[in-house]
């Protein structure tokens, strides 16, 4: 308790000191002669942030870009585009790419669609805030925690249906009388095939089950943001459409959805970028990417640290970067269109 108190005092003092330093610097800047005064004041405001960005993101990224052209445990042997060649030719690496693509598509699509659906159905429903809070709840849970939680859904232990503590396994075994065929105990997170169908393009069942977990975490965010945007749609717009003869469904698809299009794109982009960085779930549920569950972000960690291949890890980071650029570009354009359309 005393420790916590000390922490808070330190933080409060730190923050106070920080603001005091900013004010002091600003005062100093104001004492300078004219051509420098304004510039110095601006620097007080943007300087700290820019230092962090340049020192923490730009320079390291350039360094990583260079690193991706080297190989060896210390990344000091010139390798040209060798890392990238491996990345796109080796079959294990292609599985990583394939998984990542499926992660991105499925999570983004599912979260956004669930978000839109709930936002629409729950609008002005009784108890709406509570239902939305329940769906939003997983957003607050760490992926490590989510891993433990979902273990009680996916876990499989022996053959006895009544000894199972994984909810899904139990339901699966108990459902034997209803479902066709014999229900064997199934190790969900080790099944690398797509419903028993082996394909190099389709994701394994285990990947799909992990995707469910991320959708579970992300959908609440999409719901709340889209719902808020939908409530911003002016009532008279929808009423005008109804008077013009539009049904509920038509006014939703023709008026409300286009109106909140910008928000939906923003939500999808945010989700997408978050998914590209998914690491913790694969670490805990996929045991660091075994059973063909690895993703770009996970592989990047595995290669850079436990496997001591920083060059290859850097190459993966570069690929992540390249993948996000067009997405952010589209989103930025969308934002600009919205602003100009005002």
């Amino acid at each position: 308790m005393i420790e916590i108190f000390k922490t808070f005092v330190t933080v409060a003092l730190g923050l106070g000191a920080f603001l005091a330093v900013m004010v002091g610097l600003y005062w100093l800047a104001s004492q300078l002669p004219e051509p420098w005064r304004d510039r110095a004041r601006v620097m007080v405001f943007v300087g700290p942030a820019l230092v962090l960005l340049v020192g923490g993101l730009i320079l390291p990224s350039l360094y990583t870009g260079r690193l991706s052209l080297f190989t060896g445990p210390n990344a000091n042997k010139w390798y040209g585009f060798g890392n990238f060649r491996e990345l796109f030719t080796d079959s294990d690496n292609l599985i990583v790419l394939r998984n990542t693509v499926w992660w991105v598509i499925l999570v983004t699509l599912a979260s956004t669609v669930i978000g839109i659906t709930i936002a629409r159905l729950a609008d002005r429903m009784r108890g709406e805030p509570y239902a939305k809070a329940l769906i939003f709840l997983p957003t607050a849970i760490s992926m490590v925690g989510a891993g433990v939680i979902w273990n009680f859904v996916y876990a499989t232990k022996g053959n006895d249906p009544d000894k199972q503590y994984g909810l899904l396994t139990w339901l699966w075994l108990k459902a034997e009388p209803i479902l066709p065929g014999k229900q064997d105990p199934h190790y969900w997170l080790q099944d690398r095939e797509f419903f028993g169908f082996h394909s190099s393009f389709l994701p394994g069942l285990n990947t799909l089950f992990m995707i469910v977990v991320i959708v579970w975490i992300q959908a609440g965010f999409a719901t709340v943001v889209i719902s808020a945007a939908m409530k911003g749609v002016p009532d008279d717009l929808v009423e005008a459409a109804k008077i013009d003869g539009a049904t509920d469904r038509q006014s939703f698809f023709r008026i409300v959805l286009p109106y909140v299009k910008g928000t939906i794109i923003t939500v999808a982009t945010t989700t997408l970028i978050a998914v590209l960085k998914v690491f913790d779930i694969v670490q805990t549920m996929g045991k660091g990417g075994q059973f063909a569950t690895s993703t770009l972000a996970n592989d990047m960690y595995q290669r850079s640290f436990p496997l001591s291949q920083p060059g290859y890890g850097a190459a993966l980071a570069v690929i992540l970067f390249v993948a996000v650029v067009p997405i952010v570009y589209v989103n930025a354009k969308n934002q600009r269109n919205i602003r100009e359309g005002r």
Partner: peptide, 29 residues
């Protein structure tokens, strides 16, 4: 709210940095 040279471009640059995956900076940092 402050006026300075290249303000809008610097801001675009900052926003563009959202693109950088944190993985990209781990090793150098």
């Amino acid at each position: 709210w402050m006026k300075f040279w290249g303000r809008d471009w610097i801001f675009v640059g900052v926003v563009a940095l959202m693109v950088v995956p944190l993985q990209m900076t781990l090793i150098p940092l």
